[in-house]
Amino acid sequence: MSVNELFKKDLKVVNIGLKSFYNDLKSQNLTAVHVNWKPKAGGKTRMVSLLDKLKKMN
């Protein structure tokens, strides 16, 4: 969706990170989903590397 197409739509937001940004959107009755984000694989580098190996199989 180009920027100009976006301008014609209702903004629908996925918020990833600080919850307060989501609360602000909801308080204005805007459509939003908050992602309860955590670092991938809890940030364990070994696990991240294993998962990446599998992703790279394409």
Partner: peptide, 13 residues
């Protein structure tokens, strides 16, 4: 849950 989302606000580390 929001298939027609068009904007992602990112504030993770």
């Amino acid at each position: 849950y929001l298939p027609d989302a068009n904007m992602v606000v990112v504030s993770v580390p």
